[in-house]
């Protein structure tokens, strides 16, 4: 017996509504994040991640309200990312009821913010989220580059070095999203997962590329401790989380 592999659905939230669409049957309102959080909890999700894609600050207030309402009703860990820039943003999210905050671009722009947040709240509250893509750029030794703006903008930063640095600065977890694999539904980028696993000892969440339950064991074999997906759960059958867990269990990894 050992720690279970976590299966984490991710919900994009804009102005208090889930966007990108969700295709559950028998749901009164497919756009309500709290109702979806319930649904995923009942379906066996081990954690939930909200990605706040809101642009305006007034809409951000709405997100905090969504977090609060979710945390009042769904008793599994809740991570919130999107627009987290400072330790004050993290404080607000934690006060709202989030258990963890994920940080992406703001940490790329100013890595010291990782130290500031983890010094104040501990490592366990901070998830480093990064969108990485393959590159031929000879300046980037590992061949994996950190991007921002959903993969549209390169940073010239080596993704593997970045994971090493962020771990040393104290992030408690890494959410690794492959821009190349994202949306393909052709499977995870296992080489990227393996490369990151080699430079960090914090928990690693793999994201990007999942299309079928059979895709998941490879990510875990490569070193992921948890797996995150969006569309597959939103548009798949209601028991997709159970199917994913069954595939992981069949491959010899423990699940809840």
């Amino acid at each position: 017996m050992s720690l279970a592999v976590r299966v984490i659905p991710c919900l994009d939230v804009d102005a208090g509504r889930v966007v990108k669409g969700v295709n559950f049957e028998n749901l009164r309102d497919a756009g309500d994040p709290v109702e979806l959080a319930h649904r995923y909890n009942d379906a066996g999700a081990d954690e939930l991640t909200f990605l706040d894609v809101t642009a305006s600050s007034s809409d951000r207030e709405t997100t905090y309200d969504v977090v609060t309402r979710t945390a009042e009703e769904v008793f599994i860990p809740l991570t919130v990312g999107g627009g987290v820039r400072t330790q004050e943003d993290v404080a607000t999210l934690l006060r709202s009821g989030a258990d963890k905050a994920s940080i992406n671009t703001a940490a790329v722009n100013r890595p010291e913010v990782i130290d500031e947040i983890t010094d104040r709240f501990g490592s366990q509250v901070l998830v480093l989220s990064l969108d990485a893509r393959r590159t031929d750029d000879p300046q980037i030794a590992s061949g994996f580059e950190v991007t921002t703006h959903g993969g549209r903008r390169g940073t010239g930063i080596d993704a593997i070095s970045w994971c090493r640095e962020a771990s040393a600065r104290g992030v408690g977890e890494i959410l690794l999203n492959s821009i190349d694999a994202d949306g393909t539904q052709a499977g995870f980028d296992v080489e990227m997962i393996r490369a990151v696993r080699q430079v960090t000892s914090v928990p690693l969440i793999a994201s990007g590329g999942a299309g079928r339950p059979e895709h998941f064991p490879a990510a875990i074999d490569a070193g992921a401790d948890a797996v995150l997906a969006a569309s597959m759960f939103h548009f798949g059958p209601v028991d997709m989380i159970a199917r994913v867990k069954e595939a992981i269990r069949a491959a010899g990894h423990p699940v809840r």
């Binding site: 017996m1 720690l3 408690g172 914090v202 401790d225």
Partner: peptide, 9 residues
């Protein structure tokens, strides 16, 4: 892997 994060028996 540390932190020990997740569901254990």
């Amino acid at each position: 892997v540390v932190p020990h994060m997740g569901w254990n028996t």
